[in-house]
């Protein structure tokens, strides 16, 4: 049966589509265009070609933010996933109170980034206060502060995904391995980890994009201090737009680079997960 839905387009699609055009499509197109312009407000933009892009790569705050973001992302992806996986292993052993523990470990993930940042600001400064210093004293303090915060926020979240993956492993496989005399480590390395690889991929990319785009936590915990040393990419883009008169075009060019990296990560993820799904079929 061929249905003609077209008379219903204005009711079903138009409200969402209009909102989408206003708050995404037009701003996106304008953003691409403005990255090639010099401007202080959108109205006085004049075309300057690749000038903004040339400018940002000689801007030390941008290269520093890029490097800081990469370091931070690598460290948090590794630590979050190791801790989350170990916790998931422990919580799939049928321990008493498993559900309560799961509820508690997941909870920090619900709290907003600004609030998270100030909670850890209070605690880290409280600890560093014993040594007569604070988080803005050294970039390393801010770096590890962000790593601890991100671990606290994301471990429970990733743990829940790993638990779902672990519960999908058929018990007879591990039991058969046990009967054949495999040690506990052999079972983990040879059976458990290969079987949860799909969850590993999901969690790796989730922590990757979360860490890479971090903004609120960064703003509330250190706001980039000392100087701009602990400003990550998103915060640097924000500072360029709103804190440096005459640099709006450069801010938009940074945002385009930021978008391209985020899109590349998403594309690789899509390729990896699709490839795996195809193999399983």
């Amino acid at each position: 049966m061929k249905r003609n839905l077209h008379p219903y387009f204005p009711l079903f699609v138009l409200p969402t589509l209009l909102a989408f055009i206003i708050s995404f499509l037009i701003p996106f197109a304008m953003g691409i265009y403005l990255s090639f312009c010099k401007f202080t407000t959108v109205a006085n933009a004049s075309w300057t070609g690749l000038e903004n892009y040339r400018r940002i790569f000689s801007d030390s705050s941008f290269t520093n933010a890029l490097w800081f973001t990469v370091k931070f992302t690598v460290v948090s992806v590794i630590t979050v996933n190791i801790f989350a996986f170990l916790l998931a292993l422990a919580l799939t052993k049928g321990l008493r109170g498993t559900n309560v523990f799961r509820t508690i470990f997941f909870m920090p993930n619900l709290i907003g980034g600004i609030v998270l940042g100030y909670i850890w600001n209070l605690i880290i400064n409280g600890v560093l206060g014993f040594f007569g210093t604070d988080i803005t004293y050294k970039a390393a303090y801010g770096f590890w502060g962000l790593v601890i915060l991100t671990n606290w926020q994301l471990i429970g979240y990733m743990m829940v995904i790993y638990i779902a993956g672990l519960q999908n492993i058929p018990r007879d496989i591990t039991e058969a391995a046990e009967i054949d005399g495999a040690s506990r480590w052999q079972i983990i390395w040879r059976i458990t980890i290969p079987m949860v690889m799909p969850s590993v991929t999901i969690c790796t990319f989730l922590t990757l994009t979360n860490s890479f785009k971090l903004f609120d936590q960064n703003l509330a915990l250190t706001a980039g201090a000392p100087g701009k040393e602990t400003a990550m990419l998103a915060l640097d883009i924000y500072n360029t737009f709103y804190g440096r008169p005459g640099w709006q075009g450069a801010g938009q060019a940074k945002a385009v680079i930021f978008f391209i990296i985020a899109a590349a990560i998403a594309f690789i993820q899509l390729r990896l997960t699709e490839g795996k799904a195809a193999k399983e079929r």
């Binding site: 953003g31 959108v42 385009v256 985020a262």
Partner: peptide
Amino acid sequence: KLFLFSMIVPFQMVMYTMTYVA
């Protein structure tokens, strides 16, 4: 397809122009 595309675009990409349009 456009809806799908919007999911990979970070907020910083559109924040300045979105504020202007809004």
